[in-house]
Structures are given as C-alpha cells and as structure tokens.
Amino acid sequence: MEEPVIEFHLDARSGVSPYMQLVQQVRHALRLGLLREGDQLPTVKEAVARLAINPNTVLKAYRELEHEGLVAARPGVGTFVTATLTDTSLAAHGPLRLELQRWLAKARRAGLDDESIEALFMTTFRTATQEDIA
C-alpha cells in the first residue's frame, strides 16, 4: 500500500470536535499546498488505527469535505482530493490582514487590552455567525 500523503493528529484539549479537527487539517494541508488534486486521503481504516477514534468520526469529516467539493470518494478505493484551496482565498488574505491590523491598532488606542480585544472579537464573531444561521 502507498504511504498516505498526510497523517492526522488530534488535540484533545482544543475544544474543537474531533471530526472538525480532521476537516480543518485537510483544509489546512490544501491551503499550504501539502495536498494536491489527485492525492489520496488516509483510508478510514488507516485514520482509525492511527488515532484510535470512532470510524464514524472519519466518515463524517470526509462527508463534510465531499460536501464542500474538496474531495470525492471512489467506492472501494478511497477518498481523493478533487480541488485546491491555494489560489482562491489566498489573494484576499493580504488586504484583510491589513484591515485587521488597522482595527487592532484602533482598539489598542481606545484602551482595550489583549483579553478585551479577544472577547470583543469572539462575541461579535459568534453573534454574526448566529445571525447567519437564524
């Protein structure tokens, strides 16, 4: 059997559910160009044997990635990368970072410390996400 291109790992204390950690690791590898179109993800058996996790966790992660159009399952063979994330959003990162830096400078000038900034960001982020759902 061929060596898998990437290996998964799990952080038990991150607060992020295991299936989401797998999804994020694939996305991350795609962004970094570690995973390219045509690459095979670890099989469910490989991932399960390595991480000692429930097979449904891996299946759920792969279904999510499939739903996002990033991978496709070939029955009996495995799951393969069908798209890339390197070119689409990377271009937008620069300007967004610049805006964020400006905003951070403004927040500091207004007297917010690191914790207040983080709390403000997280509550706004959560409210915005919830409104999106609602």
């Binding site: 399960v48 044997a49 390595r50």
Partner: peptide
Amino acid sequence: RREFMQGLMEATVE
C-alpha cells in the same frame, strides 16, 4: 490503552 483502542477501532472498520 491506546494500542488496545487502536486495534479495536481498526477491527470495527474491517
């Protein structure tokens, strides 16, 4: 513990 769970989970897939 880990090795035991790895073996068990791998077998459930198979």
